[in-house]
């Protein structure tokens, strides 16, 4: 409570105090650890993997976990452990690029409609609603089938689809801010619409966008893995959790380790992101009830 504890640079001080708040919450601490663990693993896994992920071994097909193959081998005799720890690289890379793009474009469009309001805003939001009411996998498959798979298609596709719900969040958050007097003050001074968006609205919507971004990231990871699972994502032999689950699914009854590794990896990352997002929302004082449906 004491004013003396506030550091000189207030903005840095706020960032630090939010980070401290996130870490002081059990969900934030666990979540952030999981996320950081996965990020580090994604970077260093090629150097620490005990086996090459491509090396097949016809003599060692579907063997159970032992001292050499910690998670056993798959139907081609490849080391499941080595493939699991590297299986998130592609997913994290693609979603890690697509998420900021989605938040940026969705956020800007949302802030714009939130600012102008009125009929245009209403009509646009009905379009957004209509779009969101279609099953995502259908929409995505249309694009992927048309343009083919691969990173250069997946990143824009994911960024496009996941930016649309961000529009809703950004618009709702902007609506709360637009009514406040500092926006009226900026208008009365004669600032342009662009300046008002950038200087007055964006800083106040950023918190909501950050939380939303974290949530979008976890959804996107799931979507990416689902696409891989269906065979529209990463192509073999690149290790990928979704693809690995798809491959090992048939042997699940007698060789469950093939599914277990990637499932645990994928779920820990997604849970980690969700926990962090929750803690971040609480630390920033954002009401998650206003979260739009996916």
């Amino acid at each position: 409570m004491s004013l003396a504890s506030i550091p000189q640079n207030s903005r840095l001080g706020r960032t630090l105090s939010v980070l401290r708040d996130v870490m002081s919450r059990p969900s934030g601490a666990v979540g952030l650890c999981l996320v950081v663990f996965h990020l580090i693993l994604a970077v260093i896994s090629p150097y620490i993997a005990p086996f090459d992920y491509r090396t097949m071994n016809a003599a060692m097909m579907l063997t159970g976990p032992d001292g050499v193959h910690f998670l056993g081998t798959d139907h081609l005799g490849r080391d499941v452990f080595s493939r699991t720890i590297q299986g998130g690289r592609e997913a994290i890379l693609v979603t890690g690029i697509a998420t900021p793009i989605a938040v940026a474009w969705g956020g800007l469009v949302g802030i714009f409609f939130g600012l102008i309001g009125g009929r245009v805003d209403e009509v646009m939001m009905r379009f957004v609603d209509a779009f969101l009411s279609l099953p995502w996998i259908l929409k995505m498959l249309v694009l992927i089938v048309t343009f083919g798979t691969g990173i250069e298609v997946l990143i824009p596709t994911l960024a496009f689809f996941y930016g649309i719900p961000v529009i809703r969040i950004a618009r709702a958050a902007t609506h709360d801010v637009v009514a406040r007097d500092f926006v009226a003050a900026a208008r009365a001074r004669g600032h342009s619409r662009m300046t008002i968006m950038r200087k007055e609205l964006l800083p106040n919507v950023l918190d909501a966008l950050m939380v939303e971004g974290a949530m979008r990231w976890s959804w996107m990871l799931l979507a990416f893995s689902s696409l891989s699972f269906l065979g529209f994502g990463v192509s073999p032999p690149t290790p990928d959790w979704g693809l690995m689950i798809a491959d090992a699914r048939g042997f699940m009854s007698f060789a469950p380790w093939g599914v277990l590794g990637p499932v645990i990896a994928l779920s820990t990352l997604i849970i980690g992101i969700n926990l962090t997002a929750d803690a971040l929302a609480k630390a920033l004082g954002i009401d998650r009830a206003q979260k739009a449906p996916v």
């Binding site: 903005r11 007097d181 500092f182 200087k199 800083p203």
Partner: peptide, 29 residues
């Protein structure tokens, strides 16, 4: 005209952008 007419609002909690430092607030005009 915009410069010569200025408005001061009722509640400074609402009329000052909470995310701007005092310097940024004064720099705008």
């Amino acid at each position: 005209h915009l410069r010569r007419i200025q408005l001061i609002f009722q509640n400074p909690d609402d009329s000052l952008n909470p995310r701007h430092t005092i310097a940024e607030i004064l720099e705008q005009p």
